[in-house]
Design a protein around this nucleic acid. Structure first.
Lengths: 160, 160
DNA sequence: CTGCACTGTAACATGATATATTACAGCTAT
DNA sequence: ATAGCTGTAATATATCATGTTACAGTGCAG
């Protein structure tokens, strides 16, 4: 199994909201065009980001705005916001009917839970370290790299 | 999304193979009884563990045996063996149609891949640290704890 | 060497869920 | 007022995890 694409879609959307922040009509249809999904998916994902306090929107008018600076939005925040994984059970799906009449079956859950939690914690800790500022920085570098291939910057002049 | 229960089932099976290692007729039906799933599931999971070199089995005769000591079998080994997640794409499902005509859509994948990989690496590193010996140790402690509730051990005597 | 127990695997069934799609009520701005 | 937009419900579809039945082939006990 995999973590839902809603996660990468959410990161894409926030990145685009930042990148196109001075542009008009950055609506769900425009964003859907960039992401390559249905506009309704964009609206639902933005809805979850709004519930989590990551973006602000106004019903009826287009253009969500970020509620926090990019470096205050972590992968973990987004991952939780868009329900990337089952909230109750966590990352691992434990088989549901271990036999209570078997000593192994009766105790396997307790015996494993600590270990599964430590794996999940390791993953979440890393997600808390990565912010949208990191991604935006990376994507700007990529885009600059593209431009250089066409019109090499005159680096000696300093400012572009 | 979640990691398939095949993972916890595999850990359960290996734990049971160790716990019942001196018992006869530990076949797929017996194991299925402990795990609480269909015997065919047990056979397929054991099949994957065999392909990964974690257990040895003999067609036609019951009782798989571990191919390595318990402390040589990590969560990561099992996780890979039973295809807990998509081998090609990894832990995260990236949305599949980012728009190549959009600077963000065209570069988001490259910009995120490093970060997604670091999350996956953190998780896998933790999985490599946990071995089946840890789980077996924990479950033995749980089972001993159960027994004490019924027939308290005379701790002063030393040996039980 | 015969019969039983078991494995390995295919084939099919079922249920859950991620994603797509259509539709529309209500809000906003010009 | 009109057009553009959001939020959300309802429904469809596809994928996949898991369950289940079935059976050929292997090993072993007697």
């Amino acid at each position: 199994m995999q973590i839902t694409s809603r996660f990468t879609i959410a990161v894409h959307i926030i990145t685009a909201l930042d990148y196109f922040r001075d542009m008009d009509r950055v609506n769900s249809e425009f964003l859907a065009g960039s992401v390559g999904v249905n506009p309704v998916i964009v609206r639902t994902v933005i809805g979850k980001l709004r519930e989590a306090g990551i973006v602000r929107t106004q019903k009826g008018s287009s253009g969500a705005e970020l509620a926090r600076p990019l470096d205050g939005i972590t992968f973990y925040d987004i991952y939780k916001a868009v329900d990337s994984v089952n909230e109750d059970e966590g990352l691992f799906h434990f088989h549901e009917q271990p036999n209570p009449e078997c000593p192994v079956g009766r105790n396997i859950h307790k015996a494993m839970d600590r270990r599964l939690a430590s794996v999940q914690d390791a993953m979440e800790a890393e997600m808390k370290r990565i912010t949208l500022a990191d991604v935006v920085e990376d994507i700007r570098a990529e885009i600059l790299g593209e431009e250089e291939q066409i019109r090499p910057a005159r680096r000696k002049r300093g400012k572009s």
